[in-house]
């Protein structure tokens, strides 16, 4: 199979996120980046498919801090090719990023071979302008399924599982090539030991492929960016069990649990 995994770096929420002086962007002082979680599953799913059906896994990223580590890790895990598009991800919204990636994929082969799967993560925590997978599918005019949690390819098509809610899933049949937004792989992402990543850094290479930068990097203008009020300590509810229960019911309603 011909598998493209699109990897995106997102701010690491373990670090404290602060708003920069412009009141709109994130303060870069303590900002660190990590691979978006669902993308990690997309990579795993691709590797599992390759192990089972053969083929080639290409991981593709835009330029972002710490992205080389992620690419080498992917290579150490078993990806065959790592491509970096030298466009600064931080300046692009999802719409523009989709355009850049679509250009790259079109340049790879038009049309894409029939055993191609393009696998972005289902969503990213900073997808303010929408998700990459449907945007890419539109740009490439390929079929799309999102929130995918299982893929079984067959001649020219694939049976995929989409997660609905509460453990309920639906099975869909998709004509290939297709773009599938991966939520979770068949197995949790594998661990790759540090020694293997180091070996990859020594022996493997990251390809850089030039693409034209998009004319309009962002769709949306931010008015203001801020931190939500921190809770700090629980809001204490007082009164008799009945009174407390009444308050709790309100809270449950507010949180859509009733």
């Amino acid at each position: 199979m011909n598998l493209y995994v699109l990897l995106k770096m997102v701010p690491d929420t373990v670090e404290e996120l602060n708003v920069a002086a412009d009141g709109k962007s994130l303060d870069s002082e303590f900002l660190r980046f990590k691979l978006n979680d669902p993308d990690e599953h997309a990579l795993e799913q691709a590797l599992l498919l390759k192990e089972k059906h053969g083929g080639k896994v290409t991981v593709v990223t835009l330029d972002a801090p710490e992205v080389d580590d992620v690419l080498f890790t992917a290579l150490a895990k078993g990806a065959d090719r790592a491509v970096k598009l030298p466009v600064n991800q931080a300046e692009l919204g999802t719409v523009a990023a989709a355009r850049v990636l679509a250009d790259f994929l079109k340049a790879e082969a038009t049309p894409l071979p029939p055993d191609t799967l393009v696998l972005p993560g289902s969503y990213a925590i900073d997808d303010l302008e929408g998700e990459l997978a449907p945007l890419l599918a539109t740009a490439l005019e390929l079929p799309y399924v999102g929130v995918v949690c299982g893929i079984a390819p067959a001649e020219g098509k694939a049976t995929v599982r989409k997660e609905f809610a509460g453990g309920l899933r639906g099975e869909f049949e998709v004509a290939l090539p297709a773009v599938l937004g991966i939520q979770s792989a068949d197995k949790p992402p594998r661990y790759v030991p540090v020694a293997k990543v180091r070996a990859a850094m020594k022996s493997a290479r990251i390809e850089t492929v030039d693409v034209p930068p998009p004319d309009r990097p962002r769709q949306l203008e931010l008015e203001r960016t801020y931190k939500p009020e921190a809770a700090g300590h629980a809001e204490m509810l007082e009164g008799s069990p009945e009174e407390v229960a009444d308050r709790l019911v309100e809270i449950l309603v507010k949180n859509s649990a009733i």
């Binding site: 929420t13 925590i125 203008e221 931010l222 008015e223 960016t225 939500p228």
Partner: peptide, 16 residues
């Protein structure tokens, strides 16, 4: 004006 919750709810952004 929409308030978006980004980064798993750590940051809110207002968009007009």
């Amino acid at each position: 004006v929409c308030t978006s919750q980004l980064f798993g709810g750590k940051i809110y952004s207002d968009v007009k």
